[in-house]
Design a protein around this nucleic acid. Structure first.
Length: 536
RNA sequence: GCGCUUGUAGCUCAGUGGAUAGAGCAUCUGGUUGCGGUCCAGAGGGUCGCAGGUUCGAUUCCUGCCAAGCGCACCA
């Protein structure tokens, strides 16, 4: 609807130019937006202000001319907008017609859960790599934030027609596995500590040397700790776990990548090591692929891993990394470019998470009994709350997780506020069913109350929201939308009685609205990975 | 020292080259014992870190500075 409007405005300006009303100039990009304030209608554009200089006349006049031209265009056909209004400095505001609103409700009922789907990502094969924490210990809160965010993003991308592979890269080949072995053996080279190390020691301390112990421990950590947390606690489904050791190194990808880079003459030998000339791609120094002692670096593995991604035919690569790894981006990009990756990888850098309760930072310490792991946090606040909270904020903010609010089991907690709205919708529909009220053939044109209008227009913005999120990876808009939708619903509910025996036709129309709202709210929650309860 | 990220209401955070900068929590007021009141309506609260610049217009873009977080390995 937004694109169509932008198109219309463009045509209107062009028509004015042809008529000689406006000077001829190259028409700039037209941006239609949702106004800040509801009183300004459903859409607004400040194009007349932008044009005032090009057109050489005052913006208000230009706006008026554009508005008239648009109205002329729409003459005869069924009107999408009942009002096109020009205001103060030169804004043009558009208001949905009743027909648009009621047709929208009917459309939602017809499409059901498919409402909001698009073909934006048709033919795009996405490699969505996230978490990828080393198999040396349990997942922590930073992993939770990135994990939930990327998982929801995958849902959004799928809804917009992308083919998405959720991928976890397991660094099971490097030094850290041996360090884990030492830690389990509790010798002088131990680096990791904590309860889980004691648990591993009981099981594997007798498995051999540090390397052997490390190997079995890492396997156990991945299979029994990380994967269990992912599946049972976080409810994240990974399509594939790529092992650095078996899928990349042993499968020969690292070797292949190194050879390819040599062929391309992008490497150099110096100080007894083999380097990739990443400086050619914007890095401030070259990076080592093969060390003096002949072993390959982690960076070499990554080159192999990138090659492995390339061979699987992905046309878009998304990397969700913790902020503590952001320094590695330049190198990763350089490697991708050097290897000839067609698409530019997109990075979502997730800042670390702080915990606070009642405004006081909670220092994460196991001794104090504070939460540290994802398992702990989810046990404490529940899966839905954890997801909602981590999803609520843009990844680049240095967020503070509000434990006090998260633990609150009331309407103060936005998660319950939203879920309650869904339960309430279901409750009304249950009651309608009990009373054998059929609303299949109702006429949504009867929905003329101001609160109804506010609710419907919110529903109709859903498809645009989905596309926007898919384009700029802003999954954090999902919880915000859910809160706003719940808000509009409650407000409507308070003002309008749905089931009213004296007005059967209005009842039917409102039941349709209830059903439409339930569909959109449930879909929003589903995209977030949060439960949409029928009762609470 | 260099790099990345952040700085918006008391707190946690949205948002934007244009119309009076928004939400949740907290505070205060009013409504509502009703299709589930886990509700609704409203109020107060802001120099959008600071200083310049670009622009008809900057909280938004650019530069500098200040503050916070995180990085700066032939570790992974």
């Amino acid at each position: 609807m937004k694109e169509q409007l932008e198109q219309k405005i463009w045509q209107a300006i062009e028509a004015l130019q042809q008529a000689g009303t406006l000077a001829s100039f190259v028409i700039p990009a037209i941006r239609v937006e949702r106004p800040k304030d509801e009183q300004f209608g459903e859409y607004t554009t400040s194009i007349a202000l932008v044009l005032s200089k090009l057109a050489g006349k005052n913006p208000l006049e230009t706006a008026e001319e554009i508005a008239v031209s648009i109205k002329k265009q729409g003459a005869g056909e069924e009107k999408v907008f009942e009002k096109v209004e020009v205001v103060k400095p030169g804004h043009i505001n558009f208001y949905f017609s009743q027909k648009t609103l009621s047709a929208g409700v009917a459309d939602i009922l017809k499409q059901g859960n498919d409402f909001g789907q698009s073909t934006l990502g048709k033919g795009v094969k996405v490699n969505n790599e996230f978490i990828s924490a080393n198999p040396t210990g349990p997942l922590h809160l930073g992993n939770a934030r990135g994990g939930f965010y990327a998982d929801s993003l995958a849902n959004i991308l799928r809804k917009t027609g992308h083919e998405v592979v959720n991928e976890y890269y397991v660094n099971d080949a490097g030094e850290q596995v041996i360090k884990l072995g030492h830690s389990v053996l509790k010798d002088e080279e131990a680096v990791y500590g904590g309860e889980y190390i004691d648990e591993l020691a009981l099981k594997f301390a007798g498995a051999g040397d540090a390397e052997a112990v490390g190997k079995v421990s890492a396997t156990y950590v991945l299979d029994e700790m990380i994967k269990k947390t992912l599946q049972e606690k976080m409810q994240i489904v990974f399509d594939t776990f790529v092992s650095e050791r078996t899928d990349v190194l042993e499968a020969g990808y690292t070797e292949k990548a190194i050879n390819l880079l040599k062929e391309k003459d992008l490497t150099l030998e110096a100080e007894g090591a083999l380097w990739l000339r990443t400086t050619e791609f914007g890095d401030d120094k070259d990076r080592v692929l093969v060390k003096q002692d002949g072993t390959k670096t982690y960076f070499a593995s990554d080159c192999g891993y990138i090659l492995y991604k390339m061979e699987r035919g992905f046309t878009q690569i998304i990397e969700t990394w913790g902020a503590d790894h952001h320094g590695y981006i330049t190198r990763f990009r350089a490697a991708a470019q050097a290897l000839g990756l067609q698409t530019t990888p997109r990075f979502i850098i997730v800042q670390l998470v702080k915990l606070a309760k009642n405004g006081v930072e909670v220092r994460m310490s196991k001794r104090a009994g504070n939460v540290v792991t994802i398992d702990d946090l989810i046990e404490r606040v529940g899966h839905d709350v954890a997801r909602f909270f981590f999803l609520m904020y843009a990844p680049e903010t240095h967020m503070t997780f509000d434990l006090g609010l998260a633990e609150e089991r009331s309407q103060k907690n936005p998660v319950f506020y939203v879920q309650y709205a869904h339960a309430r919708l279901c409750s009304i529909l249950r009651k309608a069913a009990e009373e054998n009220l059929s609303y299949a053939s109702a006429d949504p044109v009867l929905l003329v109350h101001e609160k109804e209008r506010m609710l419907i227009r919110e529903l109709l913005f859903f498809p645009e929201l989905i596309d926007t999120m898919a384009q700029d990876f802003s999954a954090h808009r999902l919880p915000q939308y859910a809160m706003r939708l719940a808000d509009k619903l409650h407000s409507f509910y308070d003002a309008c009685r749905v089931i009213d025996a004296d007005r059967p036709e209005l009842t039917s129309a409102r039941l349709q609205l209830i059903q439409a709202t339930r569909i959109v709210l449930a879909e929003t929650l589903t995209l977030m990975g949060v439960a949409a309860p029928e009762q609470m």
